[in-house]
């Protein structure tokens, strides 16, 4: 059963932005049992050009570059995994590419989901909630002074 594009994107989106330390710990715990990942390209560091839109919704313009790290790996069983993430973290890119390849295998999909994707999404949701609530506390509640006339 092939993973559909939305599935695969969902897994990659979660893993690429997951906090590195918990990801690495979970990976370490399982790495002995994982089918090995052979390097195809990278991990290598480069950059991408970030773009904005003029006015916010108009034509694109080049804003400036950002460092990225990318990796492509292959399993012996043939699955190819990719990763490209902001920043310079060769080890994380390799791990995520490995997990992306594993997630395409029937015997590993569930493990990747429960041990890596779900915890990452949960941690992200909690962090985002915290940010939102901290900013919310700085919302201005306007109240209008009612003049004492009519």
């Amino acid at each position: 059963m092939q993973a559909t594009i939305p599935d695969r994107k969902r897994v990659l989106d979660a893993l690429l932005t997951a906090a590195t330390r918990p990801l690495a710990q979970a990976y370490e715990a399982l790495s002995a049992t994982m089918p090995q990942a052979l390097p195809v390209r990278g991990p290598e560091i480069g950059m991408v050009m970030l773009r904005g839109r003029i006015g916010g919704g108009g034509q694109p313009f080049n804003l400036g570059e950002a460092t990225v790290t990318r990796a492509t790996v292959r399993l012996e069983s043939g699955e190819i995994g990719h990763a490209v993430l902001l920043g310079r973290d060769m080890e994380k890119a390799r791990m995520v590419a490995h997990l992306d390849a594993l997630a395409q295998r029937d015997d590993w999909r569930a493990t990747v989901e429960t041990r890596f994707v779900a915890p990452a999404l949960e941690a992200e949701a909690e962090e985002r909630r915290r940010q939102v609530e901290e900013v919310e506390a700085t919302r201005v509640d306007f109240f209008t002074m009612v003049r004492g006339e009519d």
Binding site: M47, M49, L50, P60, A66, V68, R70
Partner: peptide, 9 residues
């Protein structure tokens, strides 16, 4: 650094 490409706006 090599430029790999562009991000989406």
């Amino acid at each position: 650094l090599s430029r790999f490409g562009n991000a989406k706006p």
